[in-house]
Amino acid sequence: MLKLPLELPSFYWSQNKTAIDIKVKDWIEQRLPNSDESLLEKQWDIVLLGAPLSRSSISASAASEFPDHFRKMWKGFGTYNIDTDQDLRDLRVLDLGDIEMHVTDISKCHSNIKKVMNGVSKSFSESLIFTIGGDHSITAMLVSGLKDVDPSKKIGILQFDTHLDLRDLKDQGPSNGTPIRNLIESGIVEGENVYNIGLHGFFNGPSLISYAKEQKVNYITLKQARKKGIMETVQDALLELEAKVDFIYVTIDMDVLDISYAPGVPASTPGGMSTTELFEAVYTAGTSSKIRAVDIVCLDPNRDLAVQPTVKAGVHTFLSFVSGLMNKQV
């Protein structure tokens, strides 16, 4: 087995792989207590990780609960995408389980995240790695783990977010408000290779804008993206990144959605993306041949409404990206 701080998925589904119309729960392979070594030796298009950490969140958050809620929602989605006329069941996806977290030691949690990403990216070098958070602090650790595999490789960041996440590390430490600054100041990512799409409203101060400009961060407001077109904006960002970097990391902060679409987000705001816009954006991102890893962060199921619209949006976001990835392979 993988000698990494990884726990088996804490929620399992019984599967029916013979049905004509299968659900996501019947499609994604899960690492079970009785799984043998051969499961880890197979070729997978996507490997899934859970990173259930939210103690490093600036605002109170139970984003650590999202990986489990994400898995439990699989029964509500089929593998066929009517919008693209694709059946995702043709892709091979393995759920490796959750990265081990310490109850109180955030630095230990971050160390485990970095170690797991490093080990998984080596063991599954041909697979796209998709992590379900967790708060946004996990992104800096995941990208750091990826960088350690081959320090000579240049990494680009495509970020969907309401916030720049460039707060000062001296004030905030490695929290969910600092992951992009953390990556820039540690020399892992160059500011000019960060593209943030979705900023809007009154949620980023002048000091952060000044730092972004100083570091040549590419930030595109939601107003600008809508004027140009969401798909066109993402396509242009990808074209620029693909010309500059060896591979791209996509981070999706669910607070990029308008509060009416995402009540289960701690830092939800008015004026954000609609779910349709986000699904279109991540689908477009999925078509890039240079995407190496993706995360979805900052979704707190405990804040969600009874029918869990935000959790459903999170699963739909994952499936939309995978649809784009499949389109790339067609």
Rank of each mutant, 00 (worst) to 15 (best):
P9W: 14
S10L: 00
S14I: 13
S14H: 10
Q15W: 13
T18P: 00
D21F: 14
I22C: 11
K23E: 04
V24C: 13
N34I: 07
N34K: 09
D36P: 10
D36W: 04
D36L: 02
L40F: 10
K42F: 11
L49Q: 05
G50F: 03
G50C: 06
G50H: 02
S59A: 15
S61Q: 14
S64I: 05
E65T: 04
F66N: 06
F70P: 02
K72P: 12
G76D: 15
F77E: 09
I82P: 03
D85M: 02
D87A: 06
R89G: 08
L94F: 10
I99F: 00
E100S: 09
V103E: 13
V103T: 11
V103W: 15
T104C: 00
D105L: 06
I106R: 04
S107A: 10
C109S: 14
C109I: 02
K115I: 11
K115W: 07
V116D: 03
M117A: 11
V120P: 05
S121M: 14
K122F: 04
S123E: 15
F124H: 09
L128S: 06
F130E: 07
F130P: 05
G134D: 09
G134Q: 11
H136F: 07
H136V: 08
I138D: 01
A140W: 01
L142F: 01
V143T: 09
D150N: 15
S152I: 10
S152D: 14
S175H: 00
P179S: 03
I180N: 10
L183A: 11
E185W: 00
E185A: 09
S186K: 13
G187M: 13
G187A: 10
G187S: 12
G187C: 13
I188H: 08
E190A: 09
N193L: 07
V194G: 03
L199G: 14
G201Y: 01
F203G: 01
G205M: 14
P206F: 04
K213D: 15
E214L: 08
K228C: 04
K228Y: 01
V234N: 01
A237I: 00
E240H: 01
L241D: 03
E242F: 09
V245F: 00
I248V: 13
V250M: 05
D255H: 11
V256P: 06
D258E: 15
G264H: 02
S268K: 11
T269G: 02
T269D: 02
T269K: 05
S274V: 04
T276N: 09
T276G: 11
L278R: 05
V282H: 03
T284D: 01
T287W: 01
S289H: 12
S289A: 14
I296L: 08
P301L: 08
P301D: 01
G314R: 06
T317W: 03
S323W: 03
L325R: 15
M326N: 15
K328N: 12
V330F: 03
